[in-house]
């Protein structure tokens, strides 16, 4: 028992000492989430009237930006032959000018209002607010068993004239608004 305890203490001490290093060696939650945003831009198709061929794809964060600069690094990146431009926005009016809007957790209290405002305007809404896709958001990111997964609301996407590729739908944890609902 004692030996186990001292081993455990050693394990702890080693762990604590190596800590800053270990933390840096693995990607943070929001770095992964930022990578997801780029992929969503890749695998979702906007109506041509909303996003003409070759036009700039505007990626926005509504509310307090939790990405800590990770999105700035994506500014100017090419996706499907178009340039991605990142912009933080404060209001719904500004958000309507974007193609992909990440709704920050800071906006949770006004979520209903935001979803209503974005409805039918050709904007892909993404968020990690709990139950986002379920309540009518486009794509909700969910952290489960230390991995970031996502839920898709097909009915919302269809209403907004967006098309998710079959690959995106296949990898989604839960797909709402269709017959296929896993879990």
């Amino acid at each position: 028992m004692l030996r186990h305890l001292s081993r455990f203490a050693l394990f702890l001490a080693l762990g604590l000492a190596g800590l800053p290093v270990v933390v840096a060696s693995q990607p943070g939650e929001y770095q992964i989430k930022a990578a997801y945003l780029i992929n969503f831009a890749r695998y979702v198709e906007w109506p041509a009237s909303r996003l003409p061929l070759g036009a700039v794809l505007r990626l926005c964060v509504l509310g307090r930006d939790p990405f800590g600069g990770a999105l700035l690094g994506l500014d100017g990146r090419q996706v499907q032959g178009r340039e991605v431009r990142f912009r933080p926005v404060d209001s719904l009016e500004q958000a309507l000018e974007c193609h992909l809007v990440f709704v920050s957790g800071s906006e949770e209290r006004r979520l209903g209002l935001i979803l209503r405002g974005l409805a039918g305007r050709g904007v892909l809404s993404v968020s990690d607010i709990e139950g986002f896709a379920e309540v009518g958001g486009g794509i909700g990111m969910v952290t489960e068993d230390d991995r970031v997964r996502f839920d898709i609301n097909q009915a919302t996407l269809a209403r907004d004239g967006l098309r998710a590729s079959s690959q995106l739908l296949r990898l989604g944890r839960q797909v709402f608004g269709t017959e296929r609902t896993s879990r």
């Binding site: 990607p27 939650e29 770095q31 992964i32 230390d146 991995r147 970031v148 990898l171």
Partner: peptide, 19 residues
């Protein structure tokens, strides 16, 4: 490099710590 990962790879990636 993270942004270059495919969806399949992202889905399998472990997060350091979750807020």
């Amino acid at each position: 490099s993270l942004a270059d990962l495919s969806l399949e790879e992202l889905v399998r990636l472990d997060v350091t710590a979750v807020s």
